[in-house]
């Protein structure tokens, strides 16, 4: 009984912490969606791009004799610069010309952007698996007194959780306390009205994509340490979509909670249902869960209900 409970806790904790990683990606989606109404399919590709830029420049600098801490700072700055350039190009050449188009067109254009980024990132930085070691990757054993063998918690997951918390607080401060943050919220409410009080949409969209790019960079540091920077990150990032469905597209807390639900849900399902219906449930669990939530509550758990007008 105690063993079973210990096992359950272990699965739950690892699931929740893995869910934080989904939340990190989902956050980037929510930021862009709130401020511009664009559902940014490219967020996963941006994580890949940020990760590749980071790991490749870090390897290069270390190989050229820079001390590790200096190399990390330089590589982070380089990756941030890459994300800024991406944000500028996307705003300038894709979303700028598509202003006032309907949501589906914008969504499809970000699928186009996804492919450009995926192709471009791999062409510039290579397409192998690159290990990244920013955080310790071993594990702690907690409560060894309470459960036989203790509770295994991997350090990288805990790091991820802490980073996510800092990020959320930072974003909240940015949105609530800064002038740019206020402008962002104004644009989110009403494009035309925001424009009429002199807020430049192009500038705001650039800022939003930049912030989303930096969120992607943060996600890339954690994911890259956990899995190595590689193309399959894109598919994991795709799981942010069901996370958003569950949490609602416009809610930052929703993104976090959605991520936790998906992370914990799929690990528990894998551990307890997997043996009966053949493993690999993790592959689709999040999507089917999202489908079920959609049927019950189309606006997501935290989204607002929309009154349709004509």
């Amino acid at each position: 009984m105690i063993i079973a409970f210990g096992q359950f806790l272990e699965v739950l904790v690892s699931g929740l912490l893995a869910g934080v990683l989904y939340s990190l990606v989902a956050l980037g989606f929510v930021l862009i969606f709130k401020a511009s109404g664009v559902f940014n399919f490219a967020q996963g590709a941006m994580v890949l791009l940020a990760g590749l830029a980071l790991v490749r420049s870090l390897d290069f600098l270390v190989a050229n004799g820079l001390p590790f801490w200096a190399a990390i700072i330089a590589a982070l700055l380089f990756a941030a610069l890459i994300m800024a350039i991406t944000a500028f190009l996307v705003e300038r050449f894709v979303l700028g010309p598509l202003i006032n188009q309907d949501g589906l067109t914008l969504f499809m254009s970000t699928i186009g952007v996804t492919f450009i980024i995926e192709g471009g990132a791999q062409m510039l930085f290579g397409s192998d698996v690159y290990p990244l070691r920013l955080f310790p990757s071993d594990a702690w054993f907690l409560f060894e007194g309470s459960f036989p063998g203790g509770l295994l918690v991997s350090k990288i997951d805990v790091w991820g959780g802490m980073i996510a918390a800092v990020l959320v607080v930072g974003l909240a401060v940015f949105f609530q306390q800064t002038k740019t943050g206020r402008a962002l919220r104004a644009v989110a409410d009403d494009h035309a009205a925001a424009q009429s009080v002199g807020i430049s949409l192009n500038w705001i969209w650039f800022i939003v994509w930049l912030v989303a790019g930096l969120v992607a960079l943060v996600a890339a540091t954690v994911w890259g340490t956990k899995l190595g920077v590689q193309f399959s990150i894109v598919f994991l990032a795709l799981k942010a979509l069901p996370v958003l469905i569950i949490g609602g597209f416009t809610s930052v807390p929703g993104a976090i909670v959605g991520g936790l639900i998906v992370g914990a849900g799929e690990k528990l399902a894998e551990a307890y249902l997997g043996p009966f219906i053949g493993g690999g449930i993790e592959y689709w669990f999040a999507y089917v869960l999202a489908l079920v939530v959609l049927m019950a509550r189309p606006q997501g758990l935290f989204g607002e209900r929309i009154i349709e007008r004509i």
């Binding site: 050449f93 186009g112 995926e118 192709g119």
Partner: peptide, 24 residues
Amino acid sequence: VETVSHLVFIVTGTLICWLLIVEP
């Protein structure tokens, strides 16, 4: 071969964005 596959990604993506802008 690798570069070709990356180029295919880039060209396809660019074309999609371009078409959505000029001729949806």
